[in-house]
Design a protein around this nucleic acid. Structure first.
Lengths: 139, 139
DNA sequence: TGACTTGATCGACATGTATCGATATATGCT
DNA sequence: AGCATATATCGATACATGTCGATCAAGTCA
């Protein structure tokens, strides 16, 4: 008699794209998959953690200071002076960046020197770099 | 008599690199400067806001879903189903991504379609891409 | 040894935000 | 008109984290 129960959604059903997020077999932590394929929640969480590491003003300034330095390596004390932040705060940021693999820490007596791991940074760039297909970017 | 006041720091003085953050005249919001020069706090804050936009698992999944789709454009309802998040949460993430310029919103009747602004995404990639000098990355 | 410096850790606090349910608004279908 | 659907907005809540002062551990120099 009434077909209400089976024909409830006139618009929705034929439109939905039915995307699955099940694929994306990202490895442990090596070479995060790009955006060109669906991403599992776990892979997205790992990748987000990496992006969060640089998504903080002070930490971006730290990376910029290291890269713009002559030797590509700076002492922790340099940041404390330059960024106007307390020493514990700088120490915290340096730890986050080091734990994420973006910075490499070299101990030299009392001093700690930090340099950028370009490979790790390039991994980030690869994720957000334009897809292979569309090369007309920045045209 | 006592020279304590002038010779207080034996180690520090000759080591400090004396870096200034005053430079970095980044424009309003166009083309964020890379990491190859010191970054002002204001420029770093703007850039951090952009990175924060993609530093969330759900939002990375959204970008990945859009990019892996056939048309490069998805309806908001697609995400609600795929990511297992509530509709208000998805709407929130889409708003953040759109406000940051990473997504472009196209209204079509009741539906809202979202696509990626590749230029904006390329800006992010440019910031974290390796410096011009060191090309031996990924060797 | 003792005074000083560097850097890490701890605890506390304030702020930001991801998430949800409830609701509002607009559009499409009957 | 009346109902269903698609999105956005609002308010509340829980959790993460940036920041600081205080403290601790370790290295350096006189």
């Amino acid at each position: 008699m009434n077909r209400l129960m089976v024909e409830r959604e006139p618009m929705a059903e034929q439109h939905r794209t039915k995307l699955a997020v099940q694929s994306a077999g990202t490895g442990p932590t090596c070479c995060p998959a790009g955006l060109d394929q669906p991403m599992s929640r776990a892979a997205a969480t790992d990748l987000a953690r990496l992006f969060k590491a640089i998504a903080v003003p002070a930490r971006l300034q730290i990376l910029a200071l290291i890269r713009s330095s002559d030797t590509g390596e700076l002492c922790a004390c340099d940041f404390t002076d330059s960024l106007g932040l307390s020493q514990p705060t700088i120490s915290h940021h340096l730890k986050v960046l080091t734990d994420s693999g973006l910075l490499v820490r070299r101990q030299h007596g009392t001093w700690a020197h930090f340099s950028i791991d370009s490979r790790r940074l390039a991994e980030l760039a690869a994720v957000v770099s334009p897809a292979r297909d569309s090369a007309e970017v920045l045209g």
